[in-house]
């Protein structure tokens, strides 16, 4: 079991010092998780630390490919509201 950081990551590095297994490392174009080291914090913390501080929805996935922080869960912006705003901006 291991988590994965995907391209939505903005490289804020907030997760980097929190990982109990030092599984997160700097890479281009964004931080990555070493799948061999990641334990999803099992036995160390109640919540996976990287996902508990990550500010970007959908940047960290579990091994099923599901976002630990799904759309709307961090910003409070309902996904349909977000989509409408993006469409309005694109139409300008």
């Amino acid at each position: 079991m291991a988590l994965e950081i995907i391209e939505r990551c903005v490289n804020c590095r907030a997760c980097l010092p929190l990982c109990p297994n030092r599984a997160i490392y700097e890479a281009q174009p964004h931080l990555l998780i070493d799948g061999d080291k990641c334990t999803e914090c099992l036995g160390d913390f109640r919540d996976a630390q990287c996902a508990a501080i990550c500010p970007i929805e959908g940047a960290i996935l579990d091994e099923l490919g599901e976002a630990l922080n799904p759309p709307g869960s961090l910003t409070g912006i309902p996904p349909e509201r977000w989509a409408a705003a993006q469409a309005a901006i694109a139409a300008r």
């Binding site: 903005v10 490289n11 804020c12 907030a14 501080i53 500010p55 970007i56 961090l74 910003t75 409070g76």
Partner: peptide
């Protein structure tokens, strides 16, 4: 200092 420990409703963390 790119990391933050809170979220504010006036901020978007895509800072680039």
């Amino acid at each position: 200092a790119p990391a933050c420990n809170i979220q504010c409703h006036y901020c978007n963390r895509k800072y680039d």
